[in-house]
Design a protein around this nucleic acid. Sequence first.
DNA 1: CCGCGTCAGTTGTATAGTACAACGGTTCGT
DNA 2: ACGAACCGTTGTACTATACAACTGACGCGG
Lengths: 157, 157
Amino acid sequence: MSDDDGTQDVRDASVDVIQRELTAFARRARAAAARVHPEIPLVSYTLLAHIEERRGCRATDLAAHYLLDKSTVSRQLAGLEKLGLVERRPAPDDHRVQVLHPTEAGSKVLATAQANRRAAYQERLADWSAEDLDRFAAYLLRYNAAGTADLPDAPSA
Amino acid sequence: MSDDDGTQDVRDASVDVIQRELTAFARRARAAAARVHPEIPLVSYTLLAHIEERRGCRATDLAAHYLLDKSTVSRQLAGLEKLGLVERRPAPDDHRVQVLHPTEAGSKVLATAQANRRAAYQERLADWSAEDLDRFAAYLLRYNAAGTADLPDAPSA
DNA sequence: CCGCGTCAGTTGTATAGTACAACGGTTCGT
DNA sequence: ACGAACCGTTGTACTATACAACTGACGCGG
């Protein structure tokens, strides 16, 4: 307990707001995503985007990145493959791993979904100044970076 | 496209980052919540918090606020009641509605969960300056307010 | 007062998304 | 060559969710 000033109260209040608003956002995110791109099975969008971005990544990488169980990723991938949006190829050097690539259809679907999402975000953020957008983006980056630092399982300890 | 200036590019880049980071956050939120308060059935935490905050609210209010189907709310509430965390009482003047109140156990569980969440957030935001926290909080408020504008949650009445 | 439209909530059914555990195949270190 | 570690799949179960059909309670126009 510092006796110098009441700065801590201000910090607490801000943290409270951040907690509450982030929670509210998370609660609504699913419904919102369903409205923006109803076609692509939802979560798969995220995985597909990651696959596109990091071509040749493995299922395990996705699981680690998104804190998902490997079985979950496996099924999501199966769905994506059935839809013809990703290809799973065994790595030549290691037969355990599958190298993931978007198909052409996958890239196309992803581009459409991204365009929709982007339009939705831009509409929502239309009346923000460039400076505010920049700062908000920076804050989110910083927040998420903090969270993923200890992420690699943060297991027992 | 417009030939007036390049400010649009900067805006687009920021919006992209915001979109991506918010999505990443949403994807991880569930797993994170499960770690922070594994006891309380997860989503119910949010509803319970809302019930606590707005004592005497109705199931329909919750559904509207969180964009949930009333059946979903009904079941969540049933679970919460079975756990002895909320009470559902018929309104005296209108027998259709149920007035919701947290039980004592509910308030206690909620307080614990909130303390845990709060601690987690504070740890994560420990090295942020008070000014940054304040601004981040303000941005999140602004962002969410835009999304809820059309929701029947801010009743003029 | 009666019937009909409306509102609140519940229940049936179906679907994602997820985890955990058990398993099969692969690779590597000793 | 054996066993540990690793990658992915499959079986099972549970939560969260939606939509639709239904029950019960209001409330209004006749």
